[in-house]
């Protein structure tokens, strides 16, 4: 099988280019910020100085030493709520990307591998979803099922699988046509072996780029749904719904501004990561297939 390994060159060289990409300042920033937020999500109960749900008598307090980012309309500590918000948005966004990838990746993989009517069906389905703006569709789903974080996650999965399906389909098709798969076939290796040995390792890179970009988008869409009151319900310290509360209390700008900064920082970090990784891999396959 050593001949097959040698023939898998293009990917090997793409991987080798990653260290260069990792050295880019923005990539490092992205990596550090994502790692920091993951830590915050893990350690929020110990990091947060106050109970995120505990209501106090100090309403609308401007940022101070006791309340770093001030207090909201019920006297809750905004800093603690922002930290706890990481425990909602980040794991949900990741779960959502995994679900969307499992669904979209499987469908796209089947479409690319089998072709024919399966391909037609899956791709037309993806077209339908693409033709309707994500938030309209997600709003309709949430409105149909009733508001709630879980339903919002379902809605986002429903609107985000086509992106994964397109990428995986394109990759599978390209790889199935490449010479090393043909060589493997000539050597008599069965189809499932071709899938496991040749196809899967080759889609890992581009898929990781997509995952980084999609995690950022998932956080944006989830928080947007919560902002509209269709996702997280009060008193959950969800960033989008905290911004929505802030919108009703303009004088106390800190209620809405800081959760927003939290969203920007983590989404930007994921986008930095995805953008640099994309430069390391073939940029075109991903951008075009992703469609956004």
């Amino acid at each position: 099988m050593s001949s097959v390994t040698v023939l898998r060159q293009p990917v090997a060289s793409a991987w080798r280019r990653i260290p260069g990409a990792w050295r880019q300042p923005l990539t490092v920033v992205g990596l550090v910020v994502v790692a920091a937020w993951l830590l915050v999500a893990l350690l929020a109960p110990w990091l947060a100085p106050h109970d995120p749900l505990a209501q106090g008598s100090n309403l609308y307090q401007a940022p101070s030493a006791t309340h770093l980012l001030g207090t909201d309309e019920l006297g809750r500590d905004v800093f603690s709520r922002v930290l706890w918000g990481a425990r909602i948005s980040i794991p949900l966004a990741m779960l959502l990307v995994v679900l969307a990838f499992l669904i979209g990746g499987t469908l796209g993989g089947l479409a690319g591998y089998l072709g024919g009517w399966v391909d037609e069906l899956v791709m037309r389905g993806a077209d339908f979803v693409f033709a309707v703006p994500t938030i309209l569709l997600a709003m309709a789903v949430v409105a149909a099922l009733g508001p709630g974080l879980f339903h919002a996650v379902l809605a986002v999965v429903l609107v985000s699988w086509p992106g994964h399906a397109r990428v995986v389909r394109g990759l599978v098709r390209t790889i199935m046509q490449s010479e090393y798969v043909a060589v493997g076939r000539l050597l008599g290796s069965p189809t499932h072996r071709a899938l496991a040995v040749d196809v899967l390792p080759n889609i890992a890179g581009p898929v990781s780029v997509l995952a980084a970009l999609e995690t950022g988008n998932a956080i944006l869409l989830l928080s947007a749904l919560s902002f509209l009151g269709l996702g997280a319900r009060p008193p959950d310290p969800e960033w989008g719904s905290m911004v929505s509360t802030g919108a009703q209390h303009f004088e106390a700008w800190w209620i809405g501004v800081f959760p927003g900064i939290a969203i920007v920082s983590i989404v930007l970090a994921f986008n930095f990561l995805g953008d640099s990784l994309r430069d390391a891999f073939d940029p075109k396959t991903i951008i075009k297939a992703r469609g956004a």
């Binding site: 944006l220 947007a224 989008g240 911004v243 920007v264 989404v267 994921f270 986008n271």
Partner: peptide, 10 residues
């Protein structure tokens, strides 16, 4: 990337 990362509602 900042433009693409900022929630529009915010």
């Amino acid at each position: 990337l900042g433009g693409m990362s900022t929630p529009q509602f915010w």
